[in-house]
């Protein structure tokens, strides 16, 4: 019996943009509707197993964009950076349920885990009370102009390896620990590497936030 895979459809590459050092955006022609927060499965051809990527473009754009960093020794991402406009990649219909409602929210992300929040802001959904973004270096606060513009003081950046007057020095977990009280009646949306998600979730749980109010998306 042939293996049934996720159905993938050919899409033409529109552009590949180097955001910073090893981080890129890949924009493809858009064939499907989506809801901000959803993912697509993407493969370089229809034979290899796809990987999942959060959509990082807005619902009003005519391209569908993902954000990725080159994984050392990875199979797919070193090939993605070789793509040129007009090349074909294979992607699934958008799916996934990391989708905020109209409640008050905090968003927390590291690295390319910021992708769904880019899509949410660009799509004009309700903005969060805070967006907390962690990065090792100052140049990896991806799409910071967009967030700064839309969120102003509600956009908090935490840099663990470099300093700047505009960002907090140190880890977001340290800052969270120092907060005397976290809002209890809002939803917390966490997206990024599993270590961050687990550590931040444990921390905000210890501060009295109910687990019913914590939504996590993990990049695996």
């Amino acid at each position: 019996m042939p293996r049934k895979k996720i159905e993938l459809f050919p899409h033409k590459v529109v552009r590949l943009t180097n955001v910073v050092s090893e981080v890129f955006t890949l924009s493809m022609e858009r064939k499907f509707d989506f809801v901000p927060g959803q993912v697509v499965a993407l493969a370089i051809n229809n034979e290899h197993d796809p990987r999942l990527y959060s959509i990082a473009s807005g619902t009003g754009e005519d391209v569908l964009t993902i954000l990725f960093d080159i994984i050392d020794g990875g199979f797919l991402t070193p090939q993605l950076v070789q793509l040129k406009p007009g090349d074909e990649v294979y992607i699934s219909e958008p799916f996934g349920k990391f989708i905020p409602g109209d409640e008050d929210m905090w968003w927390l992300a590291t690295g390319t885990g910021i992708a769904p929040f880019i899509s949410m802001v660009k799509s004009g959904i309700k903005l969060p009370e805070k967006l907390i973004h962690g990065s090792r270096t100052l140049d990896h606060f991806l799409f910071q102009e967009l967030f700064h513009d839309k969120l102003g003081e509600k956009y908090l950046r935490f840099c663990t390896a470099e300093e700047s007057p505009e960002v907090y020095s140190g880890r977001m977990t340290e800052w969270l620990k120092e907060q005397s009280g976290l809002p209890k009646e809002i939803k917390y949306y966490l997206c990024g590497n599993p270590n961050m998600v687990v550590e931040v979730r444990d921390l905000i749980l210890s501060k009295g936030v109910d687990f019913n109010n914590i939504m996590a998306e993990i990049y695996f």
Binding site: L52, K97, V197, F211, I214, M215, A216, I218
Partner: peptide
């Protein structure tokens, strides 16, 4: 339940 499983297991967001 989807909403509850999401809180317990983040995978539910992707593969309900």
């Amino acid at each position: 339940l989807n909403d509850q499983r999401k809180e317990l297991m983040p995978i539910e967001n992707v593969y309900p």
